[in-house]
């Protein structure tokens, strides 16, 4: 169980990104975080694996205090938390294989990995991860030779290499078109069913309804809603996104399985 308690983040320039946000995530949940851009979703996700250090508040993972972890403990914690990014964040000039293997750096021998040497079993694991997202044939391509959807699947494969217990997904489909969005979220859904906790920030309400098991909403860094996806109706939506917001449907198409 992941427990976020009174999390607050103030950036050096004075921006208050999070204010006293608290919530719990049970193992095996598919928690979706919604909110406007700038509402603190990205900051919240990055506080969980401490890519950003919170100003105050605590995050417990079972009995482990993430916010108090030493650098080496932190690396061990991060190993078990996979992360998927809106901009994919692949090293564009490296091969897909190298990108996927880099997800295993937390486990790898630090010296051998500096020389770029990987044991055969790790390579096998990488191929297997790529197979799971259906692009094993692209292993030797350069990352920037792939389409957006394929790049995000490499991103997921990289996260899989960590054998994570939690996957943080920061707007994983915001840079993709609607059809691809479903395909990517279905991979995440599958991982969720295999037992991983997924914490995912999303924009589109229909995607939220379709994939989330629970939803929290942020507005100006404050948690304004926590509950089941079906509880979010139009009125609630307007409350979260403001009066002017129009609900945009991601797509009415069902993505190809």
């Amino acid at each position: 169980m992941l427990s976020v308690q009174n999390l607050t983040k103030v950036y050096p320039n004075g921006t208050q990104a999070l204010k006293e946000v608290s919530f719990d995530v049970q193992d095996g949940e598919f928690l979706v975080v919604i909110g406007l851009s700038g509402s603190g979703k990205s900051t919240l996700l990055r506080c969980i694996n401490r890519l950003i250090d919170p100003t105050s508040g605590k995050i417990f993972w079972d009995d482990l205090d993430i916010t108090a972890a030493s650098p080496s403990e932190l690396r061990h914690i991060r190993r078990h938390i996979g992360m998927v990014f809106q901009q994919f964040n692949l090293v564009k000039r490296s091969s897909v294989m190298t990108n996927v293997l880099s997800g295993r750096l937390g486990y790898a021998n630090p010296w051998l990995s500096l020389l770029g040497i990987w044991p055969a079993e790790e390579k096998q694991r990488a191929i297997h991860a790529l197979e799971r997202v259906g692009i094993a044939d692209k292993a030797q391509s350069r990352a920037d030779a792939l389409s957006g959807g394929q790049q995000q699947r490499v991103g997921i494969a990289r996260a899989l290499m960590q054998e994570p217990k939690i996957i943080l997904a920061d707007e994983p489909v915001a840079s993709l078109d609607p059809v691809l969005s479903h395909s990517i979220l279905q991979y995440l859904e599958q991982l969720n069913k295999d037992g991983m906790t997924v914490i995912c920030s999303l924009h589109f309400l229909d995607l939220v309804h379709r994939y989330a098991t629970r939803v929290i909403a942020l507005k100006d860094g404050i948690k304004v809603f926590e509950g089941l996806p079906k509880e979010i109706d139009r009125a609630k939506f307007k409350e979260i996104y403001g009066e002017d917001a129009q609900e945009v449907r991601a797509t009415s198409l069902e993505a190809p399985a």
Binding site: L74, R75, S113
Partner: peptide, 22 residues
């Protein structure tokens, strides 16, 4: 591009590994 560096940091990589791979 700071993105890949962030991504590799998120995997629990060491500082040297971040430089080498990111």
């Amino acid at each position: 591009d700071p993105g890949p560096i962030e991504a590799i940091r998120a995997t629990g990589a060491r500082w040297t590994q971040i430089v080498r791979y990111g």
